[in-house]
Amino acid sequence: MAEVLVLVDQVDGEAKKSTFELLTAARRLGEPAAVVVGPAGTAAKLTETLGKYGATKVYAAESDDAANYLVTPKVDVLAALVGSAAPAAVLASSTAEGKEVTARLAARTNSGLLVDVVDLDAEGVGTHSIFGGAYTVKAKSANGTLIASIRPGSVDPEEAQGTPATEAVEVPAVDGAKAAKVTGREPIVGGDRPDLTEASVVVSGGRGVGSAESFDVVEKLADVLGAAVGASRAAVDSGYYPHQFQVGQTGKTVSPQLYIALGISGAIQHRAGMQTSKTIVAVNKDSEAPIFEIADFGVVGDLFKVAPQLTDEVTKRKG
């Protein structure tokens, strides 16, 4: 069976959940081979975890350049492996970087590219959810190796025991005139809440929340539900909540089991980021708010009365 290369999405040697989703999808197409690109020692920290999700091999591409240049070292490593391992496919997370790496790789290897798929079958047919979930599109690669980025949270990760052997691979030398040097990093400081795109419950606040301080009401409900906190563009633009939590056309696309919208009118750009959520609950003062058109359960009322009551009720039911 041919190998399927999975570009490991990791931070400081800790795999993100999306890596397990990629390994799960890779098993449908062949033998998952995880590719770790990072500074020396990164692969060793990851090998055991990658094995738990069925990786049969770990390619360790480790060097200082791998960490000190943007995107291109990953493309260089994967392109070399596409040549030497002749994989059935190359998969990466559909993050900003994952999309850039896969697109450059497809251009360099003259391969078909599938961007941001939400499913990938054993025949290599990818499913896209476009225009904010208004359309479903199926596509396949017509050239070379299938290269795809998969939207985090769209595949259920399944464990499968593997005992991967590690194989060191070279990181090709970087041409400084063709690459961007990384001179500093300020990673997002993750709080105790789950990641927005990984969470099974998301509680979001909009303009109706009214101020940064009042977002407390959104956070309290999120915390009793073990949910991530999101915000509409209107709330972010008004400075109520940081940009990294924005859900919508110009923010993140989420598809949780439950999405609770507090004080969000439901402009088309916000819906584009959340309308594929399984269940949608909305609380808004305005009975005409478009969010009610897509909500499974809507309450016309003051979010500052409804949300705290819901928080108390959930706490009570949890006992």
Binding site: L70, T95, A96, V182, I188, Q244
Partner: peptide
């Protein structure tokens, strides 16, 4: 970016 935070290039 939403995933990586800030990277200086």
């Amino acid at each position: 970016t939403a995933d990586e935070g800030i990277t200086h290039l």
